[in-house]
């Protein structure tokens, strides 16, 4: 079980308190109607799935309740860092 640092609680908390939320920094388009079918498909379904450094969303569901972002290595499973939702990509 991983330990995950919640950037809101500012402490390492056990993985069972968290829920994974998919790839991070995929903002919902402000005007979806303006997107082509292909762009909308890309927004909905296409993900990077990198080997190595991955930006992803987690939610401290059974804690402070907040969504936040994390950089995790998909090879080692190690968290490099976590940061609050809305902060710039790291």
């Amino acid at each position: 079980m991983l330990l995950i640092r919640c950037p809101y609680c500012e402490e390492d908390r056990p993985e069972v308190e968290f829920v994974y939320g998919g790839e991070a920094h995929i903002a919902r388009p402000l005007d979806p109607a303006a997107l082509s079918d292909q762009d909308w498909e890309h927004y909905l379904y296409i993900r990077r799935n990198p080997r190595g450094r991955h930006h992803e969303r987690w939610r401290h569901t059974h804690g402070c309740g907040r969504f936040f972002n994390a950089v995790r290595d998909t090879v080692s499973d190690r968290f490099e860092q976590t940061y609050k939702a809305g902060e710039a990509r790291r």
Partner: peptide
């Protein structure tokens, strides 16, 4: 509830 929190916190904060 989780879905609504997601939109509220991350899209329409």
């Amino acid at each position: 509830l989780a879905m609504m929190e997601d939109y509220l916190q991350t899209e329409w904060s």
